[in-house]
């Protein structure tokens, strides 16, 4: 199928883009890498009057360290993140997660800002941002605001971002060397949206887990921060008893819906399996490898 007709503008600044959005409201759509939007346009699931292409606005792309943060421009592609030496050193979770995103050609075009704006709970970056306690930098007519990822995802495809705002950057705290990370997911085929996935960070001190952060992919209407399980693990040695408690806690933390091939109960089961595997991998060295379950 071909998209319905729409008008197209390619603003050269964020302010210009926002002016278009202010004028058209929800009759406009922002396109960046377009890797999700284009498919929905082609299927006529979305039929905007105006497409606002922010893809060439200067200053929205690139990865840089700012003090204790790494700032990732919204237009930075999955591929640039995957290949960034800076991120591999400072936020290795993102390096670990990137290869799970779709396929090479899509990683070349798709952007982190687009992923966060669309907020698919089955996508990798939203869960990573939760686990990392990242901040979403948003610009609107009223200026810039910084929204912690943990306040950003409201419901299925509903976020703190309004129809007249644009994400300009994602700010991730630098992960200290002592804090390890693991990203795992279970996808039927390489590059598919995962049935379930998780992002885990923790510091290990004398076999005990500290500063545990655990976020799940595909386990609810939004990416899900598993706060109860995090508490169950915090400050403990991940022995069988602790792991059992953490898995039990997931029943409160997660709210998966069924997909075509997998029931909610199976997703819960798989989330528990992944948790065990992630912790085992974390204890044995974690971020040395790109995790596959």
């Amino acid at each position: 199928m071909k998209p319905s007709a729409f008008d197209y503008v390619r603003p050269s600044s964020v302010d210009e883009a926002i002016a278009h959005l202010e004028q058209f409201g929800d009759r406009a759509k922002v396109i960046a890498g377009g890797q999700t939007l284009m498919a929905t346009l082609n299927m006529r699931l979305s039929a905007p009057e105006l497409l606002v292409d922010i893809g060439r606005i200067p200053g929205l792309s690139g990865i840089e360290v700012r003090g204790s943060l790494v700032s990732i421009g919204a237009l930075t592609t999955h591929r640039e993140i995957e290949r960034s030496a800076l991120l591999a050193r400072h936020v290795p979770l993102l390096t670990q997660a990137a290869p799970h995103i779709a396929h090479a050609a899509i990683r070349n075009s798709g952007t982190i800002g687009g992923s966060i704006a669309f907020a698919d709970p089955a996508a990798e970056w939203p869960a990573c941002c939760l686990a990392l306690d990242a901040v979403i930098v948003i610009r609107g007519a009223g200026g810039e605001r910084r929204v912690p990822a943990r306040n950003y995802f409201h419901n299925l495809y509903e976020t703190d971002l309004s129809a007249t705002e644009i994400i300009t950057a994602i700010e991730c705290p630098i992960t200290p060397p002592a804090r390890r990370s693991v990203f795992l997911e279970l996808a039927r085929r390489q590059g598919d949206y995962a049935i379930v996935g998780l992002a885990l960070l923790a510091r290990i001190d004398a076999d005990k887990l500290h500063e545990v952060a655990l976020a799940f992919v595909g386990a609810g209407p939004t990416p899900m921060l598993a706060t109860t399980a995090m508490t169950a693990l915090e400050g403990r040695t991940p022995d069988a008893e602790t792991l059992h408690a953490a898995r039990e806690a997931l029943t409160r933390d997660l709210d998966p819906g069924p997909d075509l091939y997998t029931s909610a109960a199976t997703k819960r089961h798989l989330a528990g399996v992944l948790l065990g595997r992630a912790i085992a991998q974390l204890m044995s060295g974690g971020d040395q490898t790109h995790g596959t379950a």
Binding site: M1, K2, G34, Q35, A39, D53
Partner: peptide, 25 residues
């Protein structure tokens, strides 16, 4: 035309893309 099959793979500025997931404009 939904970015899954790769039959439309072309190069733009030296990188492979899905031709169905990019507008001509």
């Amino acid at each position: 035309e939904h970015g899954v099959c790769g039959a439309c793979t072309v190069r733009v500025d030296g990188r492979i893309v899905r031709g169905c997931l990019m507008l001509a404009v």
